[in-house]
Amino acid sequence: MIAAGLLLLAVGAADLVRQFAPRRWIGYLAVVVVLLLLGSVSDALLPTAAALAVGALWVWSMPDDRPTPLGFWPAVLLALVVVGAVVWLPSRVESGLIGEVWVLRSPFGDVPFDLAVLALGAAVFLLESSNLVVRAALDGEHTWRPVDARAERSGPPASAPAALTDGESPAAPRSGFQGGRLIGPLERMLVLILTLATAYPVLAAMLAAKGIVRFPEISRDGETGARAEYFLVGSLVSWVIALGAAFLVWWAAHS
């Protein structure tokens, strides 16, 4: 379980560095140092080293400034590795030095350190890494994209749009607000929290409300159905990632 959490944490942290760090090499170095410290105090240096290697491969195979060279497959392989790590590597009895002082209580009981790392890794992955996965899915399906008016005025873009989320525009030209990068992660975090809290009616209402809000735009789609396809592919992939993360944490907590 600790291996799965470290994998998701390394990948998610690397993508956050790529998106927000002004100097990426400093951010990457900080991620390496923090993860190595975490692995040393939790007696998990080998899984930490493997997680850092997977994070480096992820950065190479899932670029944030152009279409992915390997398509959707890096995300599929990562999902298989993480699921396998949770299923075949259960929570450890001893968690190294930090296990001697670790205490985290919740309404559902005490939370082991390995489970806490897995939940943290899943949450971090849902922020920016999932944006890249959704973009890879949209690229693979060649779905319609919202047109950036600024790019349209200056000519065809030199590269693919920035990472997309659940069907929102990567750069909303009408308002200048990049809502997709914020709406997608917030939505996935809500799906994760509501699913783990078994608040299924609230979850269903939230997902239905999103469809209602987007209906006027989709209804102007015309005969091609491109807007509806874009919305459905992006939204469904985003929801599957969030629900999969929630199920993974649930499985780990009950195994």
Rank of each mutant, 00 (worst) to 15 (best):
G5D: 09
E223K: 11
G55W: 01
A136F: 02
V41I: 07
V32M: 07
T224P: 14
F72P: 15
A116D: 09
L70Y: 10
A228C: 05
I26E: 07
R174Y: 07
G167D: 04
Y230E: 13
T198V: 13
L118W: 03
V191I: 14
G244C: 13
V202F: 08
E168M: 06
F177M: 15
L77G: 15
L192N: 11
A158W: 00
V41W: 00
A136E: 11
G167L: 01
S235L: 05
G96A: 05
I218Q: 05
M206N: 10
V54E: 05
V111T: 11
D148C: 14
V191C: 06
V33M: 12
E141L: 14
A122I: 03
S61W: 06
L194D: 12
A158Y: 00
Y28G: 15
A56W: 00
A75C: 12
G27H: 00
F113R: 04
W73D: 15
A163N: 12
L7E: 06
A123N: 06
V101D: 10
L29F: 04
I183Q: 11
S130N: 10
V117N: 11
P69A: 11
L236T: 15
A51K: 06
V103A: 13
V202Y: 01
V103E: 14
I218R: 08
G211V: 01
